[in-house]
Design a protein around this nucleic acid. Structure first.
Lengths: 215, 215
DNA sequence: CATTAAGGGTACCGTACGGTACGGTACAGG
DNA sequence: CCTGTACCGTACCGTACGGTACCCTTAATG
């Protein structure tokens, strides 16, 4: 349902006016509390004090605007993962725990949940670009970083594995389990994540039991 | 958005006419290829050769019909998990591999994906009962069964752990990883699950490395 | 045969939404 | 001052959908 023009616009995120960013921001806010149902062009326009005509001029159509929202949010994620510390085996393990915590808090964030719900809701439409866009902008960025520090850790002989990507997927599974889907389904956050820090630590401990190098 | 009457109807699934089951079946088919957008009352009526008036008489309103679809599908899941075999340590481990395979194929099934997408799409609406309903009818059933055989395995000293529920969540994480969400987002099934059987085996092997009892 | 209940087909209504058009305003450049 | 541009606000249009009402057929019962 996406015109070629709209996808093109969505790709050229760099060229975003201050005004346009404001609009996307308030559209995100609208989505976060209200879901897709609340994300009508009229509401977006009134919430951001801009005319519907401008919306269509800037983003092509509703799908283009939603794509722009995804890309816009994705562009803010990159720097949020923190700097790794491979100074010592202990330091790296601590970093992994921090990584786990941040991963959980990102996935449990309101904006992340809202965008994932939106993309998943449209995923049955084969032509919808939202799913791939989300995978690339969210998941892909984090995975790339993780593969990076896993390989570094293997070089320093903190860990031992064959394929960094597969190993990351195991790490992801140990950390996230079914929490993400349950949150997406609307289960209360306090119920899904009763003890944030402790879960992260046990996940990393288990990860080391699988891939750690004995000293 | 659900009238008390509708939820009540949705609960009384046992009393389903043959005719009504047919309608729910064709509604599920409609949902599977077409997504929520294709699930209009008019299309359901015409696809199952029944009148809209009957739909509203039987299910109250659209939400009630969708709830009935969930419960209906859930009522068919229970028996699908197969019978466990705890005859020997080896047999139990083989059973775990089969369990992993079945879990993956259930989650990757078209109907499961469609219903999960539907529930997740509505989950931002705090009042929507679909999320809990899906958790109870799908996840809950499997989890209960898993907790059962994990405890049995612990009694027979095949495994060693503190809490069966938490242990099951780890097992789930090792088996599923991020595959479910990626499928929900629309990633091609062949891409997400390149090697079904092998992944299940390594997952179980890792699970034993964490919770297995040394011989 | 007459009566009644269940249910299919269809027309209809109100509403909400995506998208467009148009008038009004502020401002920049000549 | 005149002109063009960008944009806001709003009215408007077509359509699609949820939900309701009405008419018809079928079949079971007396």
């Amino acid at each position: 349902m996406l015109t070629p023009n709209a996808t093109e616009i969505a790709k050229n995120i760099p060229e975003l006016t201050e005004r346009q960013s404001e609009v996307l921001e308030s559209a995100l806010a609208l989505l976060v509390d209200g879901g897709e149902k609340a994300l009508t062009t009229a509401k977006i326009a009134s919430a951001s004090n801009c005319s519907k005509e401008s919306l269509y001029k800037w983003f092509g159509d509703r799908d283009g605007l939603i794509s722009a929202m995804m890309a816009f949010q994705g562009s803010k994620v990159g720097a949020a993962v923190g700097q790794e510390d491979l100074g010592s085996a202990k330091a790296f393990k601590d970093y992994l725990v921090r990584f786990a915590c941040e991963l959980l808090s990102v996935l449990a964030g309101d904006t992340s949940l809202a965008l994932n719900r939106l993309a998943i809701g449209q995923a049955s439409n084969e032509a919808s670009p939202l799913g791939p866009l989300l995978i690339e902008n969210g998941r892909g960025v984090i995975e790339a970083k993780a593969v990076g520090f896993l390989n570094s850790a293997a070089e320093k002989n903190y860990l031992s594995f064959d394929d960094a990507r597969q190993t990351y997927h195991v790490l992801y599974g140990l950390i996230v389990r079914d929490a993400h889907v349950r949150l997406l389904l609307g289960e209360r956050r306090e119920l899904v994540m009763k003890n944030f820090e402790r879960d992260a630590q046990t996940a990393i401990a288990q990860f080391y039991k699988l891939y750690g190098v004995e000293e």
